[in-house]
Nucleic acid binder design. Structure first.
Length: 505
RNA sequence: GGCGCUAUCGUCUAGGGGUCAGGACGGAUGGUUCUCAGCCAUCAGACCGGGGUUCGAAUCCCCGUAGCGCUACCA
């Protein structure tokens, strides 16, 4: 394949949806795989629903996912402008060409009239198609009327089909697909207000931008014959190849609703998911790698991507699977990325302020690393690491397991022995191991009997990361000037013992 | 209504005339580390229904059913 040109062409009418993101991803993968060009075009011909705010968010979302584009809005390129609202003159010119060549005609029918006809046809059990009334108006009369009457422009499907009974094409995913021409009515290419309709603008643009492969959702499969016909009318020498991707559905197979917050990419970003995890998971929705492994980096996806392994059946977006993948990505993230993700979420949780004290980034990195392998998203960090941030004797004592440990004389002995040894000196990993060893010799407790009381006393929880890793992080944190200070291990043990003194045997 | 696309474990999927129908997530069980997680091992779990073609169909064809899409002067 020599330098394919592909495009992602969203409408800026809402957040970047996971379905659209997946379409963008497949375009990007294909372009990168084959050394091609990835174009971003904005289809804002529905002026009432489009907004530049959405456009900006769309582009942010793509960049966050790691999908950079080579040409298009924000990047420029020789085939621009890349916003359809800035290309109106081009569509107008092309439409006039078609009228001149007898492949399109002005239509004066009222919307009301059309509506009624559609209803009647449907009632009669027929396909609802434009009956072609205005097609029969003589050209000169049509031109006269057009000067004084508002008119849309319709495409003359029959003229473009030139006798063909059906339009077929070889889809890269579906194989041969064929539609009867009789099912396609003359559709509007230029609306009354002069703006182009989707099925027209797409073809004009893809042609002018020299797009070689149209990669989009299955919802456009039925539009393809219309666009192929327009392409013929526009005298395109070779139509692009098409690849229609299976749609992404929500739970139960229903369309992924925009109302579900999780349907927008922005939500995953806010939740602190690593973008590489989203990219990985999205790629697996409708495609499978030849090797069968599912944890893949962007580079690996690029190297392995191809339409031969794209499925035709719709895929259901499954959060648990994404989360499993995300946790594995999280565990492999370089330290600086971990710090970046974690800082944002800790700030949101009020644990960090807007500027970090010296040494904090390193500390956050070590903290995040404690939990990275179990977290699909960093927004879970404050909750997961509550042992660090939320320690009070009262809270610990509210846990029956903590109570039990303190009521048990052996466990209490362990905690007291440790407490006596916890002084000013920073508790590093080797020092903790040495102390644990001393406590073991003094109390005779070992293994679970030794570590469990310590864990419970110092973290207030029955489970968590390995203590030899976690306790030094607690200690370091206790010396950092944070908005909510963290109690040191010594303070923890002493406070807990003090709170229960006298109440236990 | 018309036209089109699709149909393998709960989910993502591999396979595509003869396979013990494979893997991953999730579930269950056991092992391991102070705990959880993780890791390792084991187990349960699927070819939408009906016809046809064939020695043989999950695989090819037809019909049905279901889901989804298009059928807009939305994209």
């Amino acid at each position: 394949m020599t330098h394919p040109r592909v495009r992602f062409a969203p409408s800026p009418t809402g957040e970047l949806h996971v379905g659209n993101a997946r379409t963008a991803l497949f375009n990007w993968l294909f372009a990168r795989r084959h050394g091609g060009v990835f174009i971003l075009r904005i289809e804002d011909t529905d002026a009432s629903r489009s907004s530049t705010a959405h456009e900006v968010r769309l582009m942010d979302g793509l960049r966050w996912l790691g999908l950079g584009w080579d040409e298009g809005v924000g990047e420029g390129g020789e085939d621009g402008p890349y916003r359809q609202s800035e290309r109106l003159a081009l569509y107008g010119d092309r439409a006039e060409d078609l009228i001149r060549r007898g492949l399109a005609y002005p239509c004066f029918c009222s919307l009301h009239e059309l509506e009624e006809e559609r209803a009647a046809q449907r009632e009669a059990g027929k396909a609802s198609l434009y009956p072609g009334r205005c097609r029969r108006i003589p050209k000169d009369e049509a031109a006269r009327r057009r000067a004084v009457e508002p008119a849309a422009v319709r495409f003359d499907v029959g003229a473009a089909a030139a006798g063909d009974a059906s339009i077929g094409f070889e889809d890269l995913v579906h194989g041969e697909v064929r539609f009867p021409v009789s099912q396609i009515g003359d559709f509007v290419i230029l609306r009354r207000d002069g703006w182009p309709s989707y099925n027209f603008a797409v073809v004009v643009d893809d042609l002018q931008m020299r797009v070689t492969h149209v990669i989009r959702g299955d919802d456009h499969l039925s539009n393809t014959p219309r666009q192929l016909l327009v392409g013929r009318g526009l005298l395109a020498t070779a139509p692009p190849r098409f690849a229609h991707l299976p749609l992404i559905a929500g739970p139960g197979g229903a369309p992924l609703s925009k109302r579900e917050g999780a349907a927008s990419l922005a939500w995953f970003r806010e939740q602190g998911y690593p973008p590489e995890a989203l990219m990985n998971y999205l790629a697996l929705l409708g495609w499978s790698p030849p090797g069968g492994q599912d944890l893949l980096t962007g580079e690996e996806l690029i190297a392995q991507f191809g339409f031969d392994r794209v499925s035709r059946a719709p895929a259901i977006f499954d959060r648990p699977k994404l989360d499993a993948l995300a946790a594995r990505h999280m565990a492999r993230l370089p330290a600086d990325r971990l710090v970046e993700l974690a800082s944002g979420q800790l700030r949101k949780a009020g644990i960090l302020g807007s500027d970090l004290p010296p040494g904090a980034p390193e500390w956050i990195g070590r903290l995040a690393l404690l939990y990275a392998d179990r977290l699909p998203r960093m927004s879970d960090l404050p909750k997961e690491a509550h042992a660090l941030f939320d320690f009070t004797p009262e809270k610990s004592l509210a846990d029956p397991e903590v109570r039990r440990a303190l009521d048990d004389s052996r466990s209490r002995g362990v905690i007291e022995a440790l407490s006596r040894r916890l002084g000013r000196e920073p508790l590093t990993a080797p020092r903790f191991q040495a102390l644990a060893d001393e406590v073991r010799r003094e109390t005779g407790a070992k293994g679970k009997d030794l570590y469990h009381p310590i864990r419970i006393a110092l973290t207030g929880a029955a489970s968590g990361p390995e203590m030899v890793k976690m306790l030094p992080v607690i200690e370091e944190g206790s010396r950092l000037p944070l908005p909510r200070s963290i109690a040191s291990c010594g303070e923890r043990a002493r406070a807990l013992l003090a709170a229960t003194r006298g109440s236990t045997a």
